[in-house]
Amino acid sequence: SKGEELFTGVVPILVELDGDVNGHKFSVSGEGEGDATYGKLTLKFICTTGKLPVPWPTLVTTLSYGVQCFSRYPDHMKQHDFFKSAMPEGYVQERTIFFKDDGNYKTRAEVKFEGDTLVNRIELKGIDFKEDGNILGHKLEYNYNSHNVYIMADKQKNGIKVNFKIRHNIEDGSVQLADHYQQNTPIGDGPVLLPDNHYLSTQSALSKDPNEKRDHMVLLEFVTAAGITHGMDELYK
């Protein structure tokens, strides 16, 4: 796709999030870079409003799984890469995230190029959380598991539907599940690639910047598309 050509090198990323969870309002600002050749993201996020009212790991899918245009699609799968094909005009990404036995996040993001920078601007609203639950009670460990993110075409809306389940580790050794339902639709009216069913395999590492006084998260992530085999004719070339 034409959009794919915008991702040949390292691309700067800007992320802006405004959130409200159970009436606790907050903002997060992030910057870093993405390299789609390797499916690599390096980002640093800062809570610009003081202390973040929710655990950082609960925002990873909104912040970095928010820029799935940096996923590495192998050559034989490039015609299934909706995310890059929607660029530079970008796409709207909407999600509902259900935390098992707790509340939910609803998010709406616009992901697009502004100049040479890929920008992810998000509004997040969280409701029905227990004040002493795993999320508002800050009981999650500061780490992140690997996940597969399942993608299918949504021809009606000229976009994709995505769903997956995140496993958050809790300090007591148990797990907090979070079910994600995602819809992506193009902002522009140019042609986009509608994929066959496949998935993104994601690995994320969270860390801290020892010199950063503000509440923050440093993230390194690798994302690769998989799940579609080479056609038989490919094998015999």
Rank of each mutant, 00 (worst) to 15 (best):
E4V: 10
E5R: 15
F7L: 07
T8P: 09
T8S: 11
G9E: 08
V10G: 05
P12R: 05
L14V: 14
E16K: 14
D20A: 06
N22I: 02
H24Q: 15
F26I: 01
F26L: 01
S27N: 08
S27R: 13
S29A: 13
E33V: 11
Y38F: 13
K40N: 08
K40Q: 05
K44R: 06
F45C: 09
I46N: 02
G50S: 02
L52Q: 00
V60M: 01
T62P: 03
S64T: 05
G66V: 00
V67M: 14
C69R: 00
F70L: 08
R72S: 11
H76L: 08
H76C: 08
K78T: 09
K78E: 06
Q79L: 11
F82L: 02
F82I: 03
M87V: 05
M87L: 12
V92I: 12
V92D: 03
I97T: 02
I97L: 04
F98V: 08
G103A: 03
E110Q: 15
K112N: 10
T117I: 05
N120K: 03
N120Y: 02
R121C: 04
E123A: 08
D128A: 10
F129I: 07
F129S: 00
K130Q: 11
E131A: 11
D132A: 04
D132Y: 05
N134T: 04
I135V: 08
G137V: 02
K139Q: 09
E141D: 14
N145I: 10
H147Q: 07
I160S: 02
N163T: 15
R167H: 15
N169S: 09
N169H: 09
I170F: 04
I170T: 15
D172V: 06
G173C: 04
V175G: 12
D179N: 12
D179H: 09
H180L: 03
H180N: 04
G188S: 11
D189N: 07
V192L: 10
D196A: 14
D196N: 12
N197D: 15
Y199S: 07
T202A: 07
S204T: 13
L206M: 10
D209V: 03
F222S: 08
T224N: 08
A226P: 13
A226S: 07
G227W: 11
I228V: 11
I228D: 10
T229A: 12
T229P: 12
H230N: 13
M232R: 15
L235M: 05
